[in-house]
Each structure stands twice: as structure tokens, then as C-alpha cells.
Simulated assay, not measured.
Amino acid sequence: MAQQHRKLLIIGSGPAGYTAAIYAARAMVEPLLVQGMQPGGQLTITTEVENWPSLIEIQGPELMVKMEEHARAMGAEIKFDTVNKLDLGVRPFRATCDSGDVITADAVILATGAQAKWLGLPSEEKFQGFGVSACATCDGFFYRGKQVVVIGGGNTAVEEALFLTNFASKVTLIHRRNELRAEKILQQRLMKNPKIECVWDSEVVEVLGEDTPLGVTGIKLRNLKTGAESVLDTSGVFVAIGHSPASELVKDQLELHDGGYVKVEPGSTRTSIPGVFAAGDLTDHIYRQAVTSAGMGCMAALDAERYLAEHHEAGMPAPDMAQIEPATA
């Protein structure tokens, strides 16, 4: 077990984490970034990315490799490990990793992201990125003139269905109940749209598709009242049953809102604990885009750099150096 101290610890390696590392390294803060269980975040399970400025098209995993390379080139240290315990009640803050390593830090940037909630079907997992998506804004463009389905009944599902009518020839909304949970104004827009059809009291039991090339061709539905099964042809399946922010590390330490998202001060990345900053999908339940996450990563690095500068001048509590080994590159 190794122990080390850093001015700044960044937890998470999606667009927010890597961008924070780039900016912090350029500010000579010498950040340490711990990647987590899924280095690169959600973009590593995405295929084509067509909305990243300056790149007409790039594969999601490739984009994240380039971000990691950029962060390393700027001087950030990147550690393949997972923080499984974070104590924000001590100064300096103390993180314990899955490897047993302990990192103390004067400031922390949380960029652990969020995960879409899935149906839990093996066939759904098989076609993720190949016809199954959890982001209409990200992937709707690929379904121009095609039929798609949206699964869910809340605001997100209705908004995704309405957005997809800009591209798809037909959108079918599938819901387990016979009425929606979405706001009334959204329901009215949905019902008035001639491209949208609703299938009530039904659940998806299997995603159907082909292997060569890998792609979705339809779904198998079960009516929850009658038990009858049917097949619906579709080229795309959009699962819109919510997201789960990865806030387990701080759920009892920081102020959260909207189902577990870390709350930050408006116009900043500052959390309810001074010296702790949050960026990306961990805080964002509205936009959830790679480019907005990257922007927040930049903000977090600038906020952290200012915090560190101010508090080092004032005399920041020093770690117990007898218990901490020097950091190694």
C-alpha cells in the first residue's frame, strides 16, 4: 500500500475529468487523476460521435484515448485505479483506492459521471451502440427516415420522442402503464405530433437484430394485461427510463438534488464543501453531453486552481508527511 499527497485529485476519466486534468496541469497544479472502473466513461460504449467540435466524425473510444493522451502530454499523472472511499470530513481530503493506495489532497474534483438506466436484457446489452441508445440528442441523427422506438413514460422519454421526430419517419413510445408521468404540456405536444404513436401497458422483452452487420431490426413486446406477445419492426431503440449519477462516494457528505446529482453553486463547480468541486454528468441532469461535460471540467480546474492559490497563501493545513510517501511519476 502506497500513500501520497497531491494538491489536486481528480476522480473520474470522462470528458469532464480529462479536461480538468488538462487545464490543471497547464496551471502547474500537478493533478493526479484516478480513472475508475470505466476509463473514458460512457463514450467508450458509443460508436460514431459527430457533434464534437472540429471532428466531423470520430469513434467514441478513440476520442477518449486522445483526451487521455492530451492530459498526459500536459503533465497530468493518470492512475488506473478506483476510489472506493472518500473522506471529505478531514483536511487534507483522503481517498482510499481499490488497490489499497491512499491519496490525500488539498482539493478534489469529482467527475464520476452518470449511467443510463437500462432494461437489463441481454439482447439490449448486445446491441448497445448498434441500434440501442440512451441519448436521442447524441444518436438521433443516425435515424433519418427510419422508424424508432422510445421506452419510458416520464419527461425524458417524451422529450426524446419529440426530438426524434426531427429525423425519424415514425416514433413509437412504449410505456408500462396506460398514462404518462410527464408534464401535461409535454403530453399535449406528444399527442398532437402525427409522427408519434403510443403503445400502452407493454414492456420490451427482447431486442431483435442481425449479427452481420450488428444492428437492430425490431423488438418483442409483451402486453402486461393480457400477456400477449408481438413483434414491432424498428431500426433504433432509445431507452429513456432515467439516469443514475455516480455519487455513491459522496452521498452522505455533499448536498445532492434531483435524485442524487451533486449540487453546485450556480455559475460554478463549487459544491457544499469548500475545496470540493464537481463537473460533468455527475452534476448535470439536463444536458448530459460530452462537450458540456468538458466545459464543466475546464470550469472545475479553474475553480480549483483559484481555491488552491487563495488557501495556500492563507496557510493550508499540511498533511502528516510521516505517513505519506512522496509522489512518483
Rank of each mutant, 00 (worst) to 15 (best):
G259E: 00
Q188T: 07
H175E: 12
L254I: 10
K225D: 09
V34C: 04
A136L: 08
A327C: 14
M64K: 03
E265K: 07
P317N: 00
V239L: 03
E160P: 01
T96M: 10
D258V: 11
K184Q: 08
P53C: 03
V132G: 12
R94I: 04
G267Q: 08
V204K: 00
L32I: 15
P317W: 00
A329W: 15
L33T: 11
M296S: 09
T112R: 01
E248M: 00
V132C: 10
A168S: 00
A322T: 15
V264L: 02
D284E: 06
P317H: 00
N166M: 02
T234G: 08
G154W: 09
G295K: 11
E124T: 05
G120E: 09
S54W: 09
D201R: 13
G12S: 08
F127R: 00
A73T: 12
A157W: 03
E229H: 06
E48F: 02
Q253Y: 04
I11S: 04
G100Q: 06
H70G: 15
N84W: 07
F238Q: 01
V150C: 04
T172V: 10
M316T: 13
G131L: 06
V250H: 03
T112G: 13
S13Q: 10
Y23A: 04
M321R: 03
D106Y: 09
H312S: 14
A309V: 15
Y18D: 05
C138I: 10
G152W: 05
